[in-house]
């Protein structure tokens, strides 16, 4: 079975994604999912989203992919139990110890390994399978050969983002703490957290996307060059049939921070593309024009978002 996973950055977005045909919607509780508070949800909204998804025969995943503080872990597990009791289908998790503890607490739940784990090779997927993970999301950097290797390494289900492969660049998320080195801020009241100080990786603070800002680079004695630290990934189309053939069963649409109409259109688009691929029709040429327009919208919205985050970063004390 191949499934389309879509973001729920708000209750409205979660409902929209389900209406447009997402099989699974993922949402993040306030302070637990590496996003600013406006792209996370309070517990009441999560409960409502779970009920809405279940009523339509769909599933809701809870993103608990921060690296919790050791002091926070008991509360983190209590939260997870509460969402399971609400009817959540599973969790997206990063921390090895938290994943292991969650598997013991909820033996029948579904556990997805987050992109924040920063895996590098097929043996990594095997490691997480040994801990009891059911599904692992693969890095943007991986193409068909890496997927095939992961398929051979264990029986863990494979998930990919709907982005084209970008094989260079700094490994983020999973191996990056640049943002919190440069800027930090305290918790906001709405985030309902005070127990420890953290960073984007830990839920408390947003990642300011410093890698996507303008930098100057070079030797001390040379004229610097202007650049960004990472290349942008483009929305995927052509790779999709090959990935399905290699055994990818979950295709994940990013974008909890994007506007709801953009997510609506993207879920609608990828629903029909995936259905076409599953119907054994590999010719996707008729979708290229529509994809081009969506790619433009994606880049435009991403650029606005980076500007907003950098402005916020500049406003916080070091």
């Amino acid at each position: 079975m191949v499934r389309l996973l879509a973001p729920g950055g708000s209750l409205e977005m979660a409902r929209t994604a389900i209406d447009e045909g997402a099989d699974v919607v993922y949402v993040g509780p306030l302070g637990y999912s590496r996003r600013p508070y406006e792209s996370e949800m309070n517990d009441a909204d999560i409960r409502a989203a779970i009920h809405y998804a279940r009523a339509q025969g769909r599933e809701l995943l809870i993103v608990l992919n921060t690296y919790p503080s050791p002091f926070e872990l008991p509360r983190w597990l209590t939260k997870a139990q509460m969402f399971a009791d609400f009817g959540a289908a599973g969790f997206v998790v990063t921390d090895v110890g938290a994943l292991h503890a969650l598997r013991r607490l909820l033996p029948k739940t579904t556990l997805h390994v987050s992109i924040g784990s920063g895996i590098c090779n097929a043996r990594d997927t095997d490691f997480y399978r040994s801990l009891g993970a059911d599904t692992i999301i693969l890095p943007y950097r991986w193409d068909v050969a890496e997927i095939a290797a992961a398929r051979s390494a264990s029986d863990i289900a494979l998930e990919v983002f709907l982005f084209e492969t970008v094989q260079t660049g700094k490994i983020c998320p999973g191996k990056c703490i640049m943002s919190s080195y440069l800027r930090f801020r305290e918790w906001l009241e709405v985030e309902n957290q005070t127990s420890f100080h953290g960073s984007a990786n830990r839920g408390a603070k947003e990642c300011y996307r410093v890698c996507q800002a303008a930098w100057q680079f070079g030797r001390d004695d040379a004229v610097p060059i202007d650049l960004k630290l990472r290349r942008d990934a483009r929305l995927m189309l052509e790779q999709l049939p090959r990935f399905v053939a290699e055994g990818v069963t979950c295709f994940k649409l990013s974008g909890r921070e994007r506007p709801v109409p953009m997510i609506r259109d993207l879920v609608r688009f990828y629903r029909k593309v995936i259905d076409r691929v599953l119907a054994q029709a590999d010719l996707l040429d008729e979708y290229t024009e529509e994809l081009a327009e969506l790619r433009l919208r994606w880049v435009r919205e991403k650029s606005k978002r980076v500007d907003t985050l950098m402005d916020r970063a500049a406003s916080y004390a070091v």
Binding site: Y67, S69, P70, D95, V96, G97, A101, S117
Partner: peptide, 14 residues
């Protein structure tokens, strides 16, 4: 350092 050790639970697993 890039092993991402954030919790005592992870240390126990490792």
């Amino acid at each position: 350092v890039f092993g991402n050790l954030y919790t005592h639970e992870t240390a126990k697993v490792l």
